[in-house]
C-alpha cells in the first residue's frame, strides 16, 4: 500500500473504481458499440448547408436542447457517485451547476471521430461547419480541438468515469458549504484514478495530462457563458420562452 494514501486501502480503491465505472456506463447516453456502428453516418453537403442556413436562434435552441439532454445524464451519473448524495443539497447543486457542462465536454470524446474531425450530433456525425449558424466559430473550433486532444489520450471507460467524477467533485468551486467534505471525496477519486492508470500500465504521464485538462475545461465553459450572454443580449425572448428550463437554470 506504499503508493497510496494510508487511509485508503487498495480494496477500497478497487471498489471505488468499480462503482464509478458502473455509474458511468449506466448513464453515458450512448454505448461505444452503438456509436461505432453509426460512425459511417456523416451529414451530406446539403444537410450541412441546411444547418448552416438555419436562423441563429433556431440553431442555438437545438444545441441548448442537446446539451440539456446530455446534462440530465450527467446529473444521474453524479447521483451514483459514491458519497455525492451524502453532501448537503447546496453543495450538490453548486457542483453540478459548475461541473455538469465540463463533464459533457469530457464525455464528448466518446462521441468524437478524430479521423474525420466530427462529433455525433442530431443523429449523424457533424464537422465544425455544421455549427456555423451559431456564430461562435472560435468556441466551436476550441471544443473540437479539446475533444481531439482528449481522444488522443485513448482513455478507457474506467479512466473516463473516474476523471468525470474527479471533475464533478472539484473542491475549489465557489459557494461550497462543506468544502472539506468535497475535498475528501475528490482526493479519494484522484487516488482511484491514479490507481486505475497504474493498473492499466499507463506510464506516459496520463495523470498530469488530465490535470492540464482542468483549466481547458474551465476556459471552454466560461467562453460558452460569454457566448450565451452575447446571444441573450440580442435574443432575450428566445432564451426566455424557447430554451430548456434546466439550461436556463444552470447557465442563466
Amino acid at each position: 500500500d506504499g503508493d497510496t494514501c494510508p487511509t485508503v486501502s487498495m480494496a477500497e480503491l478497487d471498489h471505488l473504481v468499480q462503482v464509478t465505472s458502473k455509474s458511468h456506463l449506466e448513464t453515458c447516453q450512448y454505448l461505444r458499440e452503438e456509436l461505432h456502428q453509426m460512425s459511417w453516418q456523416k451529414f451530406l453537403q446539403d444537410e450541412v448547408e441546411s444547418y448552416q442556413s438555419k436562423p441563429p436562434e433556431v440553431m442555438w435552441q437545438l444545441c441548448a436542447v442537446k446539451i440539456t439532454e446530455a446534462i440530465q445524464y450527467v446529473v444521474e451519473f453524479a447521483k451514483r457517485i459514491d458519497g455525492f448524495m451524502d453532501l448537503c443539497q447546496n453543495d450538490q447543486i453548486v457542483l453540478l451547476k459548475a461541473g455538469s457542462l465540463e463533464v459533457v465536454l469530457v464525455r464528448m470524446c466518446r462521441l468524437f471521430d478524430s479521423q474525420n474531425n466530427s462529433v455525433y450530433f442530431d443523429g449523424k456525425f457533424a464537422g465544425p461547419d455544421v455549427f456555423k449558424a451559431l456564430g461562435c466559430d472560435d468556441l466551436i473550433s476550441s471544443v473540437f480541438d479539446f475533444a481531439k486532444s482528449m481522444c488522443s489520450l485513448h482513455l478507457s471507460e474506467d479512466e473516463l468515469a473516474l476523471f468525470s467524477a474527479f471533475i464533478l467533485l472539484s473542491a475549489d468551486r465557489s459557494w461550497l458549504q462543506e468544502k472539506l467534505q468535497v475535498e475528501k471525496l475528490q482526493q479519494k477519486t484522484e487516488l482511484a484514478l491514479q490507481h486505475v492508470l497504474q493498473k492499466n500500465q499507463r506510464e506516459d504521464g496520463a495523470l498530469n495530462k488530465l490535470r492540464c485538462k482542468v483549466s481547458a475545461l474551465r476556459s471552454l465553459c466560461s467562453r460558452h457563458a460569454e457566448n450565451l450572454s452575447a446571444f441573450r443580449a440580442v435574443y432575450p425572448d428566445i432564451v426566455r420562452t424557447h430554451f430548456p428550463p434546466l439550461y436556463k437554470e444552470l447557465f442563466g
Partner: peptide, 17 residues
C-alpha cells in the same frame, strides 16, 4: 440556491432508475 434551481433540485430528489 435550492429556490433558484428547482429543476436541478427535483432531478436530484428523483430516485435513480
Amino acid at each position: 440556491l435550492k429556490e433558484k434551481h428547482k429543476i436541478l433540485h427535483q432531478l436530484l430528489q428523483n430516485s435513480t432508475s
